[in-house]
Write a protein that binds this DNA or RNA. Structure first.
Lengths: 102, 102
DNA sequence: TGCAATTATGTCCGTTTTGCCATATTCTAT
DNA sequence: ATAGAATATGGCAAAACGGACATAATTGCA
């Protein structure tokens, strides 16, 4: 039921942009997308900062390299749950994570 | 692959308790559960504070009364994504939501 | 107490998510 | 330039998720 909207998003290439300028989204959906953008950016950033490979982090969070690559690349099929697992596996505290929301 | 753990959780009745004392969970999984507990508590609380019925909030967030009942009751089949949608539909700001993480 | 409104439970089933494998592409250092 | 490491992409089967419906249980109030 979201797939139509998702298709539109992919067509628009939201993976690399900001969600605020897209149409056809409820405010909640737009906010959720923005949030995901922030989370995945932090994942990539923090992983590199720690000098980890995708494979290492993937194992630490119980996922796979290819999945993590997709996350960092902005594949829309990535739940907030999964993004949070990644951040937690990176050792981020709840406090640090909460900052990504604001 | 998570289902075994989930079954264990349900058997343990984590819906009403705190996740910290459960076994068989990675720290990340435990943290995620605690987080969900906090989010759903806020949903219930804020909904009532606004004097909304489950049906009204459900409609506002594009879901159904039964699904929302499950969310508030702590049904494990509720993603963070959905919980966030509920909070957003309740008009909570990112700042307010972020506080629920700490 | 009885009735209406609200909330809870169970189930179904289409959709989405996800781990995983194979493979391609890009990056790094020599 | 080339090998080896790291990352990206495509696809698939299995699992998780979510809206919807029916119905039960609970709550609130006259």
């Amino acid at each position: 039921m979201d797939s139509k909207k998702r298709k539109r998003l992919e067509a628009k290439g939201w993976v690399t942009g900001d969600a605020a300028d897209l149409f056809g989204l409820t405010p909640e959906e737009a906010r959720l997308i923005d949030l995901k953008l922030a989370l995945r950016a932090s994942i990539k950033e923090e992983r590199k900062r720690q000098g980890l490979t995708q494979e290492e982090l993937a194992k630490a969070m119980g996922s796979s390299q290819s999945r993590l690559a997709k996350i960092e690349r902005g594949d829309p099929s990535a739940s907030v749950d999964l993004l949070l697992k990644a951040l937690m596996a990176l050792g981020m505290t709840n406090k640090q994570i909460s900052k990504l929301f604001t």
